[in-house]
Design a protein around this nucleic acid. Structure first.
Lengths: 230, 230
DNA sequence: TAAGCAAATATTGTCAACAATAAGAATTTA
DNA sequence: TAAATTCTTATTGTTGACAATATTTGCTTA
């Protein structure tokens, strides 16, 4: 087949994939607020497609736990309750701890070098952009993502990056952080990296777990403040 | 609405749910062998439904990682490779370790008692039914499942019971176990239970992790033998 | 006025047909 | 004979209509 009409074939992506991605973004960014009801007809029209592909996309989003199907009440955008966040951080602690352990065993010298470079660039970001939380947050996730990759375990990577991290990003669009946290977090990232560089799996795991349970304590108090206001 | 024609309403279950469950069983039991191509038309006719609901079921099964969608080659039943099993056991070690830790913190005396009863009944099963591996295996999973429940963490439970355990069952339909393993496994279950009964989270986690990585070593050698044969 | 019922409406579940694409077979050409 | 090319067939993607089911609205009656 000729490579002609490639303009139309920009639908290498299937419709349901496309709407899957767009819905995912919309949910994470909060354009579709938490608890919001999903009405198939409405969304389908909005994206200019029929309900078939949309329903498949919805099924996938359910799999990622971004949508929630109640027995006889249709589907809604998931609501991040306090207990749910706690559960997520607990699972995250277990998975990322293991992730760090594996990374310490497997990472090559050059990969470790890249990781250290990353931390330096984060250092710079903090020095320069006191207030720009956004970048610091993405930076934080970036670090964790690289460790997950370095674990070289497809399952770990998938669980973390396609399920947990999305929900974390979603949560972050709501609550703001304390200003001194980034500095502290960076220090901890450095410690973890050092343990990995020394190929010390036990320590890497231990530090990562502390890092995450520490992060949860902070998020927790922030959430509690918000809950008090409401 | 009257509770009349309940005969027809036995479809409280939707078609796609039904075919989802049936397909799941078929995959786990091996009726649909690993790597087997799924042709929508074929399966749809087989179950007497149209392709719409089936496609949704397929999307869900993908989410559970029982089906695998290759870019432009349709979907196939997942193939449990050696490395995939290793990855699963690693994730399992992390999650169940955490699970045991939480259980040690949270389990009530009466729940602990039930757990101990369960072990006694497993003891009896082993004494009586030397060769009946099947029950011993289901018993094993049963133990792990209860710990997951006791963690009281919905996410942990879901990840373990609706994703990992299914794949384990699927794997077990292939490889047979060494005869002395059940006895050893039961001993380890007893140790774990003891740590939980003493509300010792650290120890419970440690023992559970050993238990699982030990199990992996055995499965691993079994898989290697099989691979040699082939 | 509140509780219960009935009709009207909205929403989800299901189907069958059509369109687009990929896989396979048959044919030609070097 | 092997590589390339077209034609054919299978398979997946998409749609709009219909059926089954919930939800709401407005009415009746106590």
């Amino acid at each position: 087949m000729k490579e002609a009409n490639r303009t139309l074939l920009s639908k290498r992506q299937t419709l349901s994939e496309k709407v899957f991605n767009e819905l995912k973004e919309a949910i994470i960014k909060g354009d579709l607020p938490q608890g919001c009801k999903i009405t198939e007809d409405e969304i389908a029209k909005q994206y200019g497609i029929s309900r078939g592909p949309l329903r498949e996309a919805i099924r996938e989003l359910e799999g990622l736990r971004l949508l929630d199907r109640k027995p006889r009440a249709g589907v809604r955008v998931v609501t991040l309750t306090h207990t749910m966040m706690e559960e997520i951080y607990t699972v995250r602690e277990a998975l990322e701890g293991m992730s760090a352990r594996l990374a310490a065993t497997r990472m090559s010298e050059s990969e470790i070098n890249e990781l250290q470079q990353l931390l330096i660039s984060h250092q710079n970001t903090i020095d320069q952009s006191q207030g720009k939380e956004y970048f610091q947050r993405e930076g934080d996730l970036d670090f964790h993502f690289r460790i997950a990759q370095a674990s070289n375990n497809q399952w770990l990577m998938d669980l973390l990056s396609s399920e947990l991290y999305q929900l974390l990003r979603m949560c972050r669009h709501r609550s703001s952080q304390t200003p001194e946290r980034p500095v502290r977090a960076l220090q901890e990232h450095q410690q973890i990296t050092e343990a990995i560089a020394n190929h010390d799996p036990e320590l890497a795991e231990l530090l990562m777990r502390r890092h995450i349970s520490g992060a949860w304590k902070i998020v927790k108090t922030l959430l509690e403040k918000e809950e008090d206001k409401a």
